[in-house]
Computed example of a mutant assay.
Amino acid sequence: MIALIRYTLATTIHGQRYLAPVLLFCAGVGISSGSDSGPLPGVYALNSGILLVCATWLTMAVISVEDPTHRAITVVAARGPVKVLAATIAVSALFAVGLTIIGLGLPLLMNPRPITAADLPAGALAHLLCASLGLAVGLLCSRLVIRRQGYALLTALALVTAALLTTGSPPNTLFKGMANTNKATDVLPTAAALLPIGLAVLAVAAVITHVISIRRD
C-alpha cells in the first residue's frame, strides 16, 4: 500500500495538475493573512473556506492524472480498485494536510496577531473539516463518477457553494461561529463535534465512488 501511495504521489507531482489549486490556495491565504482582517478565528474560517474549494479541485486533479487505460493497468497491478482509490484519497489528504499547515501558519507570519491556546486547535479542526468535505466532493465529481468534465465542474461548484452558504451545514455553522467571536474557546467544542461529520461524509463518498466506478468498469 505504501508503494502504491508513493507511486500515486509521484505521478501526481509529475503531472503538475496539483499546481493550480495549490497556488490558488496560497494566493487566497496570502490575501486574507496580509490584510487587517480581524481576529484569528475569523481569518482561519476564511482560509478553511478556501481550502474546501481547493481540496475539491485537488482530489479531482489527482484522480485525473491517469487516463482510464493507465488506471486499469494500475488496478490490475494493485490487485483491485479499492487499494487504488485508497491511495488516491491518501495522496489528496496529504496535499490537504500540507495546505492546512500553510493556512494555519501564514496568518501568524504575515500579520502577527494575538494568539490563544485555543486558536490553533480550532483553526486546525476547521481546516480538517473543510478538507474532508472537499475530498468528498472531489470524489463524487471526479471522472470515476461523472465522465463529462463540464457536468463534473458544474456539480462540484454547486456542491461547494451549497456547503459554504447553506444555513445549518457544518462549514456554514462553524464559519458563523468563528466569524462572530474573538475567543476560539467559544467554537472549539462545535469544531470538535463537526469534524466526525466531515469524516463520515468522506467515507460515504468513497464508498459511493467505488460502487459507481466498479459498475461502469
Rank of each mutant, 00 (worst) to 15 (best):
M1P: 13
M1R: 15
M1Q: 14
L4S: 04
R6D: 03
R6A: 06
A10E: 10
I13N: 01
G15K: 02
G15E: 01
L19V: 14
P21C: 05
C26R: 12
G28Q: 10
G28I: 08
G34V: 05
D36L: 11
S37I: 04
S37M: 05
L40K: 10
L40V: 08
Y44Q: 12
I50T: 10
V53N: 13
A55H: 06
T59E: 06
M60N: 12
I63V: 15
E66Q: 14
D67Q: 14
H70S: 14
A72C: 03
A77E: 13
R79H: 15
G80S: 09
V84A: 06
A86K: 13
T88H: 04
T88W: 02
V91W: 01
F95S: 08
A96P: 06
L99Y: 04
L104M: 05
L104E: 03
G105P: 09
L106E: 02
P114D: 14
P114W: 11
I115Y: 05
I115Q: 14
T116M: 05
T116Q: 13
D119P: 10
L120I: 15
L120R: 11
A122N: 13
A122H: 07
G123T: 05
L128H: 06
C130K: 09
A131G: 02
L133T: 02
G134V: 02
A136N: 09
L139P: 04
R143D: 10
V145M: 07
R148D: 15
Q149F: 08
L153Q: 09
A158Y: 00
L159Y: 00
L164Y: 00
L165N: 09
G168E: 04
G168I: 04
S169W: 00
P170I: 04
P171F: 01
L174D: 11
K176T: 15
M178T: 03
A184P: 03
T185K: 12
L188Q: 06
L188M: 02
L195T: 09
P196W: 01
G198C: 03
G198L: 03
A205Q: 08
V207K: 07
V207Q: 09
T209F: 01
H210G: 09
H210W: 13
I212F: 11
R215Y: 08
D217F: 03
